[in-house]
Simulated assay, not measured.
Amino acid sequence: MKLSSFLKKLTFFELLVSVLTILQLYHFCILFSNYSFPMPLLYGPLFWAMYQYLSNKSESVIKRDLLLGNIPFAFFVTWYFILGDTFDWTYFKWYLPIMIIVQIGYPVVILFRLKGTPSKTEGFVLLKQLMALGMGIFLFVGSVFLKHYIQVDVFMGINPIHAIAVAMVFSLFMLVNYMYSRFHAVEQDDVTIPVAEDSMLPADTGILAHCGGELVRAMEVDRLFLDSKLSLDKLSNHVGIAKSVISHYLNNQLHLTYYEWLATYRIRHAKAILMEFGSEYKIEAVAHSSGFSSKTTFNRYFKERVGVLPSAYREQSSLI
């Protein structure tokens, strides 16, 4: 799958992860030469936005809080550029305490709210890991604070900047690994089942009509789409029609891949749940109840077909 195709299918959470990765790469590059630039102030609001997304907040709320959370960064980056190359201890006197509050505040609040939350999705696992690592980075940032203010060398000669750099490498590894796993998952979802060239593909409209009828019965009567592990092999065995015939019918008659066709039934079912039960179920529960194996895949297919995320659709439905 092409990278451009993958980028078009990024969920808002994956977009936040991508932005965080790019920021940390840039921060790592300037860490040893310019540690006065207020880059750390950006991370807390991003972490909070990631948490809000996993908590099914609407994108409008996330974007609003993200904008408000970045006010300290906007203030200090303006101050930083006004100073230019001039060293000003007043800047650090205000910047360091606020940076430490941001560095410790967001991870503490997020970890507290995630306490007892089962890590059923990769997103929750990633966020918990980043918050735990953020707490470790706080220790080293705090040592910089102590050294500047009361001349106490907590780590006895170890440069805290080096320790922060090592922690950032671990953070970058987790972020890149997450995005790679999502790329691989999307690639698997988008695979078009090839039609065997040596098989006799049906040209008879009667055969195609029979295939279409059996597939509709399997979905609408037997409701096989609710099986999150439904494969083309399993479907073929259930309806008694060769995989090549099913693939030919889906690709040439409906112009859909197997997974796209399957998602149409699952999305229809999810919309019915959201319309009828509203906020009684979490988005993740709706995803699993509709046959999706992960909330991320559910959000992506739902956004593609409905135009909004499931959480936004639920809010719209409650107003009707």
Rank of each mutant, 00 (worst) to 15 (best):
V239P: 12
H148Y: 15
A285V: 06
A263D: 15
V239T: 09
F37L: 06
G84F: 15
G212H: 01
A185L: 10
L3W: 07
Y249D: 05
V221T: 15
G134K: 14
E284Q: 12
D222L: 02
E280P: 00
T264A: 08
G44N: 08
Y26D: 03
L250K: 05
F112W: 13
A196S: 15
N56D: 15
I82M: 15
M168F: 05
G136C: 07
H269Q: 03
S18I: 01
I158V: 08
I62R: 00
L42Y: 08
L96D: 06
F302Y: 02
L208Q: 02
L175I: 06
S289L: 09
Y106F: 13
Y281F: 14
L54Q: 10
E14T: 03
V61W: 04
F145N: 07
F170W: 13
L23R: 11
T297W: 00
S318M: 15
S311H: 08
K234R: 07
M200F: 10
M275S: 04
Y180C: 08
I82C: 13
S279D: 14
T86Q: 15
Y249H: 12
T121L: 10
Y281C: 00
F47W: 13
V154E: 04
D198V: 01
M135C: 12
L226T: 02
L235G: 15
P118Q: 11
N56R: 07
G157D: 10
F75C: 05
